[in-house]
């Protein structure tokens, strides 16, 4: 089962993204974290029976998106983790940096829209989790 984690310090962003994921039938229960550290805790104790899609904000206080990614590398379930980098503004440096992390499956400049959700479902790596309604 694919669990979707929203990691963003912005309350409204979490709210909007959560509602979008539910309404677009991306996931029934998005798991939201205001702090990256909370997400680290969650994942450390998470079951490797599941797969985890992380919608990760780059700019966050205390632990930013990059630092969080370094943490994931240390996790036992890192194979089951996919990261979608989300930022209000993506510059050239970020994209260069992202090449070093094979976890990152895509970059999305905020906001994530319903259209984005449909496109994500079509990504080869995610497609298996979204069976086509016949």
């Amino acid at each position: 089962m694919l669990k979707v984690l929203i990691i963003d310090d912005d309350d409204i962003v979490r709210l909007v993204q959560g509602k979008l994921l539910q309404n677009s039938n991306f996931t029934k229960e998005p798991i939201k974290f205001k702090r990256a550290s909370e997400a680290v805790e969650y994942l450390n104790s998470a079951s490797n029976e599941h797969h985890y899609l992380l919608m990760l904000d780059i700019n966050m206080p205390i632990m930013n998106g990059w630092e969080f990614l370094d943490e994931i590398e240390k996790m036992t379930i890192k194979e089951n983790v996919y990261v979608l980098m989300v930022s209000s503004s993506i510059d050239y440096n970020d994209k260069e940096k992202a090449k070093k992390y094979n976890k990152i499956i895509n970059f999305i400049e905020k906001p994530i829209t319903s259209k984005n959700c449909e496109q994500l479902k079509e990504l080869p790596i995610l497609k298996p989790f979204f069976p086509q309604p016949n």
Partner: peptide, 15 residues
């Protein structure tokens, strides 16, 4: 940041 929020909200209501 706030702009993206507004856009996200608008997209949500419209969609």
């Amino acid at each position: 940041a706030p702009l993206a929020r507004i856009m996200g909200l608008v997209d949500l209501i419209q969609s």
